[in-house]
Nucleic acid binder design. Structure first.
Lengths: 238, 238
DNA sequence: AGAGACTTGCTGAATACTCATTCAATATCT
DNA sequence: AGATATTGAATGAGTATTCAGCAAGTCTCT
């Protein structure tokens, strides 16, 4: 009896801190499916990474954050390492889906697509201080961990190829002077750099970062964009 | 006697791996001054950060890398934490000096100064895979460690202000349409993002990164630059 | 429908291990 | 003969991992 009571307290703690998923997911007691529990633990891991950094993230901290017991992580994931890999995979997956959606929603024109991609990078859903901090924690370890590097790199390569394609199209249309591949690299690097600065604090906000990115795009592709969006030449996006 | 022999072996190991300082610095035996030893340990720390990442860097690893005994770090620095802070300070100092020198060497014109700053960021001396990896390791922990954040941020703020000043001047001269502060942000973020990508590997080289940056500058400030440098209007830099 | 047997998710104390830190002993220098 | 730098074994704190046991749910048989 007393045990049941304690569990309920824990569930409440979870709902408030780690995951704000809809009610469908947090069935009380042991009912929660394997997948739900795992996701709950992943969310708690992101919390811990953001709050304490990679080096200080302990399994005890993750378990506490999820309102579960100490042994839980080794039960659902096999080891700390595997939990972290799963967490990175989860974030990479989410990010990838997000920009794919942005592409689908955008118009046909290269300009509209580029605009949409850039805007997506600073969307509330993706660009949280919490998640940026977690990303950065992984970046910091990536060089010495092939697994992380692969997980970061796989999507990233695809992402950059999209940018290269779009920059080439825009160059054709606008007869710009730059090397489109180099400019795509600049764009990608700038977006990542802005993320880094957002995470560091220093008064930069999502809105300012997006505004700066737009300034950049407008300057580099003057025939295609003004500050309110892609110009209306081909098919109008947004 | 046998001990003396062993020490010599260690010295050799040090000279080959961690520090390639001139012969003046690596006097054999215990002669080495306090400062020299500290610098030697800092170099070994950077090595370890680059090779094993922040989380896996241990004092034993640092001591081994420097070819010295286990207790050495706590003798010269008081704790692991202080060693790491000293290492970050060292790198920040080096970086700061480097771009200050670049500014001094550049001509008077804003264009020449900007060009020089950008080129400096990809200089062999600063832009080593080893050092980039160490920087990134610190970035990854910075969010949860106020000390690191301050050390990274102090220079960075100054650095960005220089860029803001230069972008404003260039805008005046060239009557460009962008917001100069935003463009300075874009430039700084892009340079950092390129560093990040350099560190990650994926076939990006210093030369390519510099070439891309130049493409960027030429596109954004067409009145001031072409691909071989600042145009000769005001005073010619470089 | 209800009692027991079985399955599965979960717990938390015990274990084993890593690593920062200490310090008495030692080597080297002046 | 000090003074100083260095060593490396011992210590202890912290933490990942293990696992025997427990409890919530599910199935089965009468």
């Amino acid at each position: 009896m007393t045990v049941v009571l304690r569990r309920n307290e824990k569930e409440v703690a979870v709902r408030m801190s780690a995951s704000q998923q809809a009610a469908e997911l947090d069935k009380k007691g042991r009912k929660a499916s394997k997948e739900t529990r795992q996701q709950q633990l992943i969310e708690a891991t992101i919390d811990s990474l953001a709050k304490r950094g990679y080096a200080e993230t302990t399994l005890a901290d993750v378990a506490d954050g999820a309102g579960l017991s100490r042994g839980i992580v080794n039960f659902h994931f096999e080891s700390k390492e595997k939990l972290l890999v799963a967490t990175l995979q989860y974030m990479a997956e989410e990010y990838s889906q997000h920009w794919h959606q942005a592409l689908e929603r955008a118009g046909e024109s290269a300009a509209a697509r580029l605009w949409s991609l850039v805007a997506a990078d600073f969307d509330r859903k993706i660009c949280t201080k919490r998640k940026l901090a977690a990303w950065c924690a992984f970046w910091g370890e990536a060089k010495s961990r092939p697994t992380y590097q692969v997980l970061c790199g796989a999507n990233d390569k695809h992402y950059q190829e999209i940018f290269i394609g779009l920059c080439r199209e825009l160059k054709e249309e606008g007869r710009y002077g730059f090397d489109p591949d180099a400019m795509a690299l600049c764009l990608c690097a700038m977006l990542e750099g802005l993320w880094l600065r957002l995470m560091m604090g220093e008064g930069l906000t999502r809105e300012k970062a997006l505004a700066a990115s737009i300034d950049f795009i407008v300057s580099v592709f003057p025939a295609h964009f003004n500050h309110s969006g892609p110009r209306e030449n081909g098919s109008g996006g947004r």
